[in-house]
């Protein structure tokens, strides 16, 4: 028997997980054409930073979570400067060798993946060496809410609310602010944007920082409900990549819609038939979406819109 409240809570839970897992990846891929295979390790940085802030520095969790996001954003900016854009190594080589040694990785899919995959290996093993195979975890705040024979963790509902808030904030940032306008101008036509006085280098750097920050925030938010270990980023990878593929070209709308669709499928099937079938249903849905909506949900919407415009 399916309990309606169970189903609704399960949906919110899956939705939050998918949206939070995918948001950072979607922004960096959608805007910079860089596939960040170290996405899971950025989540790891956020999770470890917030957990260690609580256990070692005694900072309250509510403060430690944003710290996790900020630290990861800073690390993201560092990564962008050193590896993605190569600005730092090029600065050094300009002065010593009189030439650039690194070509920026923007829109170089395969190259960006190799570079970030290498980074992910370094981060995972580095974490293992520095902190061991596991660090002490935090307990989940807020306790349960009860309804009938059932109960559910309040924190998981808070996570859902936060994920919606983040989506709205990201949408606002990229569509309603001057920063967003410049960022979108950079994506659409880098040369023209430059000519109009947009510092495109800076745009890329900040976008990567924001994407990384979102990944770090995801890790920090989930830190109290998952196990702290060097490979914790892996558990987000499937959902995040599937969500980006199913979502399509529009970053925020795509993430929201794929979070909704995939979250609903995951919730219904895992509630009716168990976790295992839920997983299979999620992947089958992704397969079907790829076959029939090769440009993702938002690509399909755009096609519809175009067709309507043409027929008018």
């Amino acid at each position: 028997m399916v309990n309606g409240i169970n189903l609704a809570l399960q949906f919110l839970d899956s939705f939050a997980f998918i949206v939070l897992a995918a948001a950072g990846l979607a922004i960096i891929f959608g805007i910079m054409g860089v596939i960040n295979l170290a996405h899971g390790e950025f989540i790891l940085i956020g999770a470890y930073t917030s957990t260690l802030s609580v256990t070692h520095l005694g900072i309250p969790l509510a403060v430690a979570i944003p710290i996790g996001g900020v630290v990861t954003a800073l690390f993201g900016i560092l990564t962008e400067r050193v590896i993605i854009s190569g600005a730092v190594p090029n600065y050094v080589s300009q002065r010593t060798l009189d030439r650039d040694i690194i070509e920026p990785l923007y829109d170089r899919l395969a190259d960006s993946m190799v570079a970030t995959f290498g980074l992910s290996l370094i981060l995972t093993q580095g974490t293992r060496i520095a902190f061991g195979n596991s660090i002490d975890g935090l307990s989940t705040p807020f306790g349960p809410i009860e309804y009938g024979a059932f109960s559910y963790s309040t924190y998981r509902i808070v996570l859902a609310a936060v994920s919606i808030g983040l989506l709205v904030a990201t949408y606002y940032l990229f569509t309603r602010t001057e920063f967003g306008m410049r960022a979108r101008a950079t994506i659409q036509d880098k040369e023209t944007a430059r000519a109009m006085g947009v510092d495109t280098e800076r745009m890329y750097m900040l976008t990567f920082g924001i994407g990384s920050g979102l990944a770090g925030l995801t890790g920090a938010l989930f830190a109290p409900v998952i196990t702290m270990r060097p490979t914790l980023g892996d558990q987000f990878l499937v959902e995040s990549f599937v969500a980006v593929v199913v979502g399509g070209p529009s970053v925020v709308l795509g993430t929201a819609l794929s979070g909704g669709v995939l979250g609903a499928i995951l919730a219904v099937f895992s509630n009716l038939y168990g976790t295992f079938i839920g997983r299979i249903a999620l992947l089958v849905a992704a397969l079907i979406a790829l076959r029939f909506l090769p440009d993702g949900i938002t690509g399909f919407i755009e096609q519809l819109r175009k067709r309507r415009q043409e027929s008018e």
Partner: peptide
């Protein structure tokens, strides 16, 4: 909202290769 200069097919192919 944005128009990536990289197609999703490339993304997929490349992700598969990376895995």
């Amino acid at each position: 909202m944005s128009r990536p200069s990289v197609s999703r097919r490339q993304f997929l192919g490349a992700s598969g290769a990376a895995l």
